Deep mutational scan, measured.
Amino acid sequence: HYVEVNGKKIQATSAEEAEKIAKKFAKIYNATVLDLGNYYKVT
C-alpha cells in the first residue's frame, strides 16, 4: 500500500495507514483523495 502525492510515492504498512496519510496530505494541499484500489492518489 502506498500514497502518491505530487508524483512521489509514500509507502504505508496498511490500507488504513495509507488512507490516513492520503487524507492528511489532501487536507494540507486542499486536494482530493482518489482510492485506486491498491493505492491512494492525492490530486
Rank of each mutant, 00 (worst) to 15 (best):
H1F: 15
H1M: 11
H1P: 10
H1D: 03
H1K: 13
H1W: 15
H1R: 06
H1E: 02
H1Q: 05
H1V: 10
Y2V: 07
Y2E: 01
Y2F: 09
V3W: 02
V3L: 05
V3D: 00
V3M: 02
V3H: 01
V3T: 02
V3N: 00
E4Y: 08
E4A: 04
E4F: 08
E4G: 00
E4K: 04
V5S: 00
V5P: 00
V5D: 00
V5C: 10
V5M: 06
V5W: 12
V5L: 09
V5Y: 10
V5F: 13
V5H: 04
N6F: 15
N6P: 02
N6S: 06
N6E: 06
N6L: 14
G7M: 03
G7A: 04
G7C: 11
G7N: 06
G7T: 02
G7L: 03
G7V: 01
K8F: 14
K8C: 14
K8Q: 12
K8I: 14
K9P: 05
K9D: 02
K9E: 05
K9N: 06
K9W: 13
K9T: 10
I10F: 10
I10W: 09
I10C: 13
I10Q: 01
I10N: 00
I10Y: 12
I10M: 06
Q11D: 09
Q11C: 13
Q11F: 15
Q11A: 13
Q11H: 15
A12F: 10
A12L: 07
A12R: 01
A12D: 01
A12V: 10
A12P: 02
A12E: 00
A12T: 12
A12G: 03
A12M: 07
A12K: 01
T13R: 13
T13G: 14
T13L: 12
T13K: 14
T13P: 09
S14N: 10
S14P: 00
S14L: 03
S14Y: 03
S14G: 05
S14T: 11
S14M: 03
A15P: 10
A15H: 15
A15V: 09
A15Q: 14
E16P: 06
E16N: 08
E16W: 11
E16Q: 11
E16M: 11
E16K: 12
E16R: 12
E17K: 05
E17N: 08
E17W: 07
E17I: 08
E17L: 07
A18G: 01
A18N: 00
A18T: 00
E19R: 14
E19Q: 11
E19I: 12
E19K: 13
E19D: 06
E19G: 08
K20R: 14
K20V: 09
K20F: 10
K20E: 12
K20L: 11
K20N: 09
I21L: 12
I21M: 10
I21H: 01
I21R: 01
I21Q: 03
I21S: 01
I21G: 00
I21V: 06
I21K: 02
A22M: 04
A22W: 03
A22Y: 03
A22F: 03
A22C: 04
A22G: 01
A22N: 00
A22S: 03
K23E: 11
K23I: 12
K23T: 09
K24F: 15
K24M: 15
K24E: 14
K24D: 12
K24L: 15
K24S: 11
K24W: 15
F25D: 02
F25W: 13
F25I: 13
F25L: 14
F25M: 09
F25C: 11
F25T: 02
A26F: 05
A26I: 07
A26R: 04
A26N: 03
A26C: 02
A26S: 06
A26E: 08
K27W: 13
K27I: 13
K27C: 14
K27P: 03
K27H: 12
K27N: 11
I28F: 13
I28W: 14
I28E: 11
I28L: 15
I28V: 09
I28S: 06
I28N: 07
I28Y: 15
Y29L: 12
Y29F: 12
Y29A: 05
Y29N: 06
Y29S: 05
Y29E: 06
Y29G: 05
N30T: 04
N30A: 08
N30Y: 05
N30I: 04
N30Q: 09
N30L: 07
N30W: 06
N30C: 07
N30H: 12
A31F: 08
A31G: 15
A31W: 09
T32R: 07
T32W: 09
T32E: 11
T32Q: 13
T32S: 10
T32H: 11
V33T: 03
V33S: 01
V33M: 06
V33E: 01
V33C: 06
V33K: 01
V33Q: 01
L34Y: 08
L34D: 06
L34V: 13
L34P: 02
L34F: 07
L34R: 06
D35G: 04
D35Y: 15
D35W: 15
D35M: 13
D35N: 14
D35K: 15
L36N: 07
G37L: 05
G37K: 05
G37W: 05
G37F: 06
G37Q: 05
G37H: 05
G37I: 05
G37C: 09
N38W: 12
N38K: 09
N38M: 10
N38I: 09
N38A: 10
N38S: 13
Y39D: 03
Y39S: 07
Y39I: 09
Y39V: 07
Y39M: 06
Y39T: 06
Y39K: 03
Y39L: 05
Y40N: 02
Y40L: 10
Y40A: 02
Y40E: 02
Y40G: 03
Y40R: 00
Y40M: 05
Y40I: 08
K41R: 09
K41W: 06
K41H: 06
K41E: 07
K41T: 07
K41F: 09
V42T: 01
V42H: 03
V42C: 07
T43M: 11
T43F: 12
T43V: 15
T43G: 08
T43Q: 11
T43H: 10
